[in-house]
Design a protein around this nucleic acid. Structure first.
Length: 906
DNA sequence: AAAATCACGTA
DNA sequence: CGTACGTGATTTTC
């Protein structure tokens, strides 16, 4: 399907000019480039997002047009074009020439007239049209297959103006927008409106009288002051209307066929960008244009029906009882309070699709839907099931029988991806184009003889949403099959079906439960930290007799530390010298300068304040914090936690642990359950145990089986002394070494961390590997095996592909080697705790207990324990976590109870 | 104005 | 020159 993109060059350049600070964008020769930069940035983004097949940029030639001939004041009164803007339009045209993008300008016409003309031509050839313009006159061009991208706020955010969106914003359909604007006026064109008549009144009149000529005919009947004002300004309104009508037949020297996207001129782009001194933007341009590699073969076709009240049961019976059915939930936007409520449901089986608005269902519809959704024997496929099921739950609908989640499957197939957007997956695995809005979805649906059966007036907005959801459901259905094939490996299928998919429900319930906080204590703590920040800032400023330095600015700190105080230089970063805590502590050790002490204190307490502040903002109305667990982010298989991140709550320092004190057992009774305490259960040294297991190192296995102090044991072997004679210093050295192993630690890194010489660190490592040869062999083999197969594997067969292991670039190759070392260890730990979570929840349920899991922090589970269940739950959690995997060493679990998370820690 | 960078908390 | 994350403030973009 052809898709034409039209840009209004002048309006976008002008917008960019005012959006970006001109003083920050100029070449060494003094040429301002902010408009060029902003325009080019918008162009890159729209090329990336919309992938047009044809494109052109229209420009105004001069201010002299037929409009100024009719009305000399047209667009008058504008501030004179700023001097810095002059010349930038020509530079933009140079960029376009280098990119081989056609630009069009016609004397006597405005850019919008050219756009209107090209839009008309494209529409007559049945192309889709996308217009990027900041001029509201373009609203009149919007229709089912002509979408306007209207910039709002800056240069990156645009509204996708569909006919529905225009109506929502202005109360009239796009074809009537110019009538409305003629009455309301357009200040940017210096077209005055009728006094006292705003969009509301104008829209009301248009609704009553059809269009402007209807209003004019009925002008005598319009009541009130507004009516009189219109009668008084009738000529002006009609003139406005003549002027804001875009010309659809501008004589052009180019035709649509000339606008086909062509390859750009690499050399010329370099030349032009060199002249503009655009470095970062050039990189962005090349990576954007070059990454558009996958070509869609087609759109997605779907045959679907809107299920009328009373038709649900029959449809489900006929289409949703055989094979897997894909489900896409439409929902209100999610809020801090929780997931958005489901408003509709698209379903797609192998053949047919349907859309079901949840609003006006008849009782028998609802009964059939409830039964079908809750029927575990009706297999369902979703994309990102957790959120969608939560939206269904929010309106009381339970879902069982989820056999596929295309986001999770895609994650297991390629866990390194940044996102698992449905459109991206459809393109990658189906070679199908999927678009959220605009014509593609509508087009695809129309090919499927879609009968939506909405009443005329409400047709568009609702049908567009329904069509879009059905296209998505069709994509999910087809993707589920494609990804089944992609995950042919039996272990990975097992991982998906038996671990990741069941975990979705566990995570959803943990998120929904949330963890209670003592908000008063948290707010008190935040104030205390804020006072500490102020004090530290004062002390720091006093130490250098300068109260203008922003202590949060690494750049300013560099000036203070290395120029003014002339302290020794630290490690280099991309832009200067590091001021990180390690480096500052090093400088303090050397100089004992009081500024450094205050600065470090400022850093610490600022961090605590920000953490406390973030938590306060995250407390929901129920007095609890509901994080979101992300299941498809970490390439190793770990979960992550966002909004807020509850996996990085401080614990190492005393002040930090005070934040843990505000996470408490809930005081509210929910459905008769009284929760009595929090419980924290964590695996001891799980990564070292996994290393012992995977490496089969006899010494390490023996240490764990004997249940001895691991680091003491290792220390005695490495240093050749009795365990009783292992000094704290020896112990901490081997401890750092042990932990570092799983990350691919080098002698250099170890020496830095322990503050010893590289030679000494190297010696320590050699001694370590001498005593624990199995570990050395394992670490060597895991990398070479990954190099051979192209991927690493965890104990449950979770794979991570690492192509850089064979890279010519040493830095990339060594990075990949460290990843290869770490991924099986970190990933196996993730496997184990995921299994433990499944087992723990199942065991709690089977035992009829009310206690529940709240958080997972990689090797730790936090539970809320019901009164009287403490002993039973502790035993149960120990049992289930301990039995989550069969390793050659025991899985040791330590458990603590307490009112707060801090007290429960141990 | 938006993207990149730095810094830092956790396992 | 140690893996995996998420967040917030500042700086850079040119």
């Amino acid at each position: 399907m052809s898709r034409l993109l039209l840009l209004d060059g002048h309006s976008l350049a002008y917008r960019a000019f005012f959006a970006l600070p001109v003083e920050n964008f100029s070449t060494t020769t003094g040429q301002s480039t902010n408009a060029v930069y902003g325009f080019t940035s918008m162009l890159i983004n729209v090329l990336r997002d919309e992938a047009p097949t044809h494109l052109a940029v229209a420009f105004d030639v001069s201010r002299q047009t037929f409009r100024t001939q009719e009305y000399a004041e047209y667009k008058a009164g504008r501030a004179t074009t700023p001097g810095e803007f002059v010349g930038q339009v020509d530079l933009i045209k140079q960029v376009l020439d280098a990119l081989r993008i056609t630009h069009v300008e016609v004397d006597g016409y405005e850019a919008d007239d050219i756009i209107a003309t090209l839009t008309g031509q494209a529409r007559s050839q049945d192309m889709e049209v996308l217009i990027l313009s900041g001029d509201r006159d373009a609203f009149q061009l919007v229709d089912d297959r002509t979408l306007l991208l209207y910039p709002v706020r800056g240069v990156s955010e645009t509204w996708r103006m569909t006919p529905e969106k225009v109506e929502e914003k202005y109360g009239v359909r796009p074809e009537r927008y110019s009538d409305l604007a003629a009455m309301v006026g357009e200040s940017s064109d210096n077209l005055p409106g009728v006094p006292g008549v705003g969009p509301k009144t104008a829209a009301k009149w248009l609704a009553a009288h059809g269009d402007l000529s209807g209003i004019v005919s009925a002008a005598d009947q319009l009541t009130g002051k507004a009516g009189q004002a219109l009668r008084d300004h009738l000529d002006q309104v009609l003139r406005n209307r003549r002027l804001n009508q875009l010309v659809g037949d501008v004589p052009l020297e180019v035709g649509i066929e000339d606008l086909q996207a062509r390859g750009w001129d690499r050399e010329e782009v370099h030349r032009v960008f060199d002249g503009l001194e655009f470095r970062v933007l050039r990189d962005r341009l090349f990576s954007t244009l070059e990454s558009a590699e996958t070509e869609a073969e087609d759109g997605i076709e779907v045959a679907g029906t809107l299920l009328q009240p009373g038709a649900v049961a029959a449809w489900l019976e006929e289409h949703a009882t055989r094979g897997r059915v894909a489900l896409v939930v439409d929902a209100e936007p999610r809020t801090a309070a929780g997931p958005g409520e489901a408003t509709g449901l698209a379903l797609a089986g192998p053949e047919d699709a349907a859309y079901l608005p949840l609003a006006d269902m008849e009782p028998e519809d609802e009964g059939a839907l409830v039964a079908w959704l809750a029927d575990a024997s009706r297999p369902k496929a979703l994309h990102g099931a957790k959120e969608q099921v939560a939206s269904l739950e929010a309106v009381g609908l339970q879902v069982e029988g989820i056999v596929s989640d295309t986001a999770l499957a895609a994650y297991l197939a390629r866990p390194d991806q940044r996102s698992y957007d449905l459109a991206d997956l459809a393109l990658r695995y189906l070679r199908r184009e999927l678009r959220l809005e605009g014509g593609d979805a509508a087009d695809a649906v129309s090919q499927g003889e879609l009968d939506l059966g909405f009443a005329e007036g409400e047709q568009d907005a609702r049908s567009a949403a329904a069509r879009s959801a059905m296209v998505h459901a069709r994509a999910v259905h087809d993707l589920a099959e494609a990804l089944d094939a992609e995950l042919a490996d039996e272990e990975e299928q097992h991982l998906l079906r038996e671990v990741e998919l069941p975990l979705v429900g566990v995570l959803r319930r943990m998120e929904r439960a949330g963890i209670a906080v003592d908000l008063d204590a948290l707010e008190t703590l935040e104030r205390e930290f804020a006072d500490g920040v102020a004090q530290a800032q004062q002390d720091a400023w006093a130490a250098i007799e300068d109260d203008t330095v922003n202590l949060g600015s690494p750049k300013q700190l560099q000036t203070v530390l290395f120029d003014r105080l002339a302290l020794p230089k630290t490690r280099r970063t991309k832009t200067g010298y590091t001021t990180d805590a390690d480096a500052l502590a090093g400088l303090y050790a050397q100089t004992e300068h009081p500024f450094l002490e205050a600065l470090l204190r400022h850093r610490d307490v600022t961090r605590l304040r920000v953490t406390a502040e973030g938590l306060i903002k995250a407390v929901a109305d129920d007095g609890r914090i509901h994080t979101t667990f992300q299941q498809t982010i970490a390439a190793t298989g770990r979960l992550s936690s966002t909004e807020p991140n509850l996996q990085n709550i401080p614990i190492r320092t005393a002040a930090g642990r005070r934040i843990r004190e505000i996470f408490v057992v809930g005081s509210e009774r929910s459905s008769g359950t009284r929760y009595a305490t929090l419980m924290s259960a964590d695996y001891s040294q799980i990564e070292m145990r996994i290393m012992a297991h995977l490496s089969g190192d006899d010494g390490l296995i023996e240490a764990f089986r004997a249940g001895e102090d691991l680091h003491r044991f290792v220390g005695s072997r490495v240093f050749g002394v009795d365990q009783a004679d292992v000094t704290p210093e020896m112990r901490s050295k081997v401890k750092a070494m042990s932990y570092g192993l799983a990350y691919g630690l080098s002698a250099f890194g170890l020496s830095k961390q322990l503050g010893i010489s590289t030679a000494e660190a190297k010696e320590l490592m050699e001694e370590y590997f001498e005593r624990f040869g199995g570990v050395r062999d394992y670490l060597r083999d895991v990398v070479s095996e990954a190099r051979r197969t192209g991927f690493t594997e965890t104990i449950l067969g979770r794979r991570r592909h690492l192509h850089d292991l064979t890279s010519d670039n040493r830095q990339r190759r060594e990075m990949a080697e460290r990843m290869a070392l770490n991924a099986p260890i970190q990933g196996s730990a993730a496997d184990i705790i995921k299994v433990a979570m499944l087992r723990t929840e199942a065991a709690l349920r089977d035992a009829g207990l009310e206690s529940r899991m709240l958080l997972q922090v990689h090797d730790e589970l936090v539970l809320e324990v019901a009164a009287g269940e403490e002993v039973q739950v502790e035993a149960l959690v120990r049992e289930q976590m301990g039995a989550a995997a069969e390793l050659s060493v025991p899985l040791d679990v330590s458990v603590g109870l307490g009112h707060s998370w801090h007290e429960a820690a141990h």
